[in-house]
Design a binder for these strands. Structure first.
Lengths: 193, 193
DNA sequence: CCTACCGATCGGTAGG
DNA sequence: CCTACCGATCGGTAGG
């Protein structure tokens, strides 16, 4: 009984992520979603209290994934800044590749969260960015990275990583490890010969 | 009389860009937009045939801007691949900085274009990407850029440039020229010392 | 450019 | 998990 409920809830979440990704959160109706899951619209409300709660669940599950993989790397004192940054990029890309639909929603539709959730989201994002910022900063002060505006470098790194959800197709393209390798290569060494 | 109509149309376009940017196209209502412009909702329909036509106008005006600045650079045979790429990055960033609201709509809401416009958009985007792709390809074959997957390098470059609309604030941050310089610096030489 | 209004669809509830 | 249904709001039209 409980197992079946969890399974339906997960199904709703997964189908919602695909619909949100394709059409955006506001343009997706509960009727559409219900149809996709094989239910009537009101039945969804026995699993989620509102449309926004589905969005909230998706967004914060992705946030949790990002933290879960990045924190252990961040806190490991035995590796160099360079290795640490490389590992962070790999874990970030892996999370994106493992959850493309949800991640697209995460990057696209967080704007539609309601007030307390929106603030929570921004706070968590800031915390996460700090992980990369600190690592880059440390690398610069150790002389392994070039002298540069830390914030700008971090922003550039995030740009490169986060745009992947726009075009990356796990089933068609190269695997996440190669993607992350290529990405590190370009960002670390540049494209100049 | 005609001048006033043009001015109202432009005003609608500008306010729409801001609303679409903040709330997304589907979440913005014609009533909201009308209020922002100081009209009643039906009055908008004397300037645009539909909500989608406003989106279409914004998106393709931005596309036009991108082409207008990039094409002369692309076709100039007197400059090296390196200079050409640098100039292309500068012009691309300049267009983003000059039209932040419209550009955000361009990157975010093109998905909501209807069929013929959607195809047209994708075609134009592909043509534009080709400008950068060709330039990188030429630079590689001339030995000025490192041997690498051209498509991946172009994608990385676009990622870096296009993510800027998410955080760049022309009134607060550094000016577009410096932004483009920093961006070229990182993408060309990397962050490694 | 406005008033008056349309059919359709929205998120969500009541009650079982 | 369903049927029946709610008030609100949507994009858009008619007619002036």
């Amino acid at each position: 009984m409980i197992a079946e409920q969890v399974s339906t809830k997960t199904l709703i979440k997964q189908r919602a992520a695909v619909l949100f990704r394709d059409n955006g959160f506001p343009a997706t109706s509960m009727r559409q979603l219900a149809k996709e899951v094989g239910l009537e619209a009101p039945s969804i409300y026995s699993h989620f209290r509102s449309k926004e709660e589905i969005l909230k669940t998706i967004v914060f599950e992705v946030a949790g994934q990002f933290f879960k993989t990045a924190l252990p790397i961040y806190e490991d004192v035995s590796v160099s800044s360079l290795t640490k940054l490389t590992l962070l990029v790999h874990s970030h890309i892996q999370v994106i590749a493992d959850n493309i639909d949800s991640v697209a929603v995460f990057f696209h539709d967080w704007r539609h969260l309601d007030k307390p959730n929106l603030d929570n989201f921004k706070h968590q994002r800031h915390q996460y960015e700090k992980i990369f910022l600190d690592t880059i900063q440390k690398g610069i002060s150790e002389g392994v990275f070039r002298e540069a505006d830390t914030k700008f470098v971090a922003l550039t790194l995030f740009s490169t990583m986060n745009w992947t959800y726009e075009w990356y197709n796990p089933s068609k393209n190269i695997d996440p490890k190669h993607l992350a390798d290529n990405l590190c290569d370009v960002i670390l060494k540049g494209i100049l010969k």
